[in-house]
C-alpha cells in the first residue's frame, strides 16, 4: 500500500486544523483543534513505521490538552479587536512566508527523495543492534545504549523545566506584595 497519498491527506487536515486553531475566537475550540493536529502527527508516525513515537505522541497530546484546558479555561479575558496596522503587518507576514515557501522548493529538491534515506550510521545500528545490546527494540537500544548520553541530557532538561515551573509559580507577583505592604502600613 502506498503511504504517500495517506500522508498528503493527513497533512492537509493538519494544516487546516492548525490554521483554524490560530484563527478561532473561542479558546476551547483552539485547544481542541491543536489536539486534532497532535493526533494527526501520531497517525502519521504510525504510517511511517514508528509505533514507539506514535504511542508517545498520542499520550503527550492528551497530556498537553489537559494542561492547556486546566490552565486557561477559567480565565475571564477579553479579546481586543486587532487594529488596522496589525492587519497590514499580518498581510506583510503572510506574503513574506509565501515567498519563503516558494523559494524553498528548490532546496527540498536537493534532499534525498522521499523513501530513500541515506542510512550510513543507521545501517550499522540495524545490523549490529541486537547483537551488541541484546534488545529486540532497536529504537530502545539506540536511546538507552548507543546514545544514552543524549537521554541523560534529556533528563537534565526535563529536570530544569520542572524546577523552572515550580520556581515561577512559587514567587508572588509584586503587585500583590505591594498591596499587602500597603495593608500593613495602614494597620
Amino acid at each position: 500500500m502506498p503511504v504517500e497519498p495517506w500522508l498528503i491527506f493527513i497533512l492537509s487536515v493538519m494544516i487546516i486544523a492548525s490554521i483554524a486553531a490560530l484563527e478561532m475566537e473561542d479558546i476551547l475550540s483552539s485547544i481542541v483543534a491543536i489536539g486534532v493536529v497532535g493526533l494527526g502527527v501520531s497517525l502519521s508516525f504510525l504510517f511511517l513505521q514508528a509505533p514507539d513515537l506514535a504511542i508517545v505522541q498520542f499520550l503527550f497530546e492528551i497530556f498537553a490538552v489537559i494542561i492547556l484546558v486546566r490552565a486557561f479555561l477559567k480565565k475571564d479575558y477579553h479579546k481586543e479587536k486587532p487594529s488596522t496596522i496589525n492587519k497590514i503587518l499580518a498581510g506583510v507576514t503572510v506574503i513574506t512566508l509565501a515567498a519563503i515557501f516558494i523559494f524553498s522548493i528548490s532546496v527540498f529538491e536537493l534532499l534525498p527523495p522521499f523513501g530513500e534515506p541515506l542510512m550510513t550510521t543507521a545501517q550499522y545500528y540495524l545490523d549490529n543492534g541486537a547483537k551488541d545490546t541484546g534488545a529486540a527494540n532497536l529504537v530502545s537500544s539506540i536511546v538507552l545504549d548507543y546514545r544514552a548520553y543524549d537521554t541523560l541530557g534529556e533528563v537534565t532538561v526535563l529536570f530544569a523545566a520542572i524546577l523552572g515551573t515550580f520556581t515561577i509559580l512559587r514567587i508572588k507577583s509584586k503587585s500583590k506584595k505591594e498591596k499587602t505592604e500597603l495593608d500593613h502600613a495602614a494597620k
Partner: peptide
C-alpha cells in the same frame, strides 16, 4: 507493563511514565 517491555515491544520509559502520570 509498558515500562518493563520497553526493550521488546513499542513503548519504554517515556510512554510508560506518561501513563503512570495520567
Amino acid at each position: 507493563y509498558i515500562i518493563f517491555h520497553g526493550h521488546l515491544s513499542p513503548g519504554g520509559g517515556f510512554a510508560g511514565g506518561v501513563i503512570i502520570a495520567l
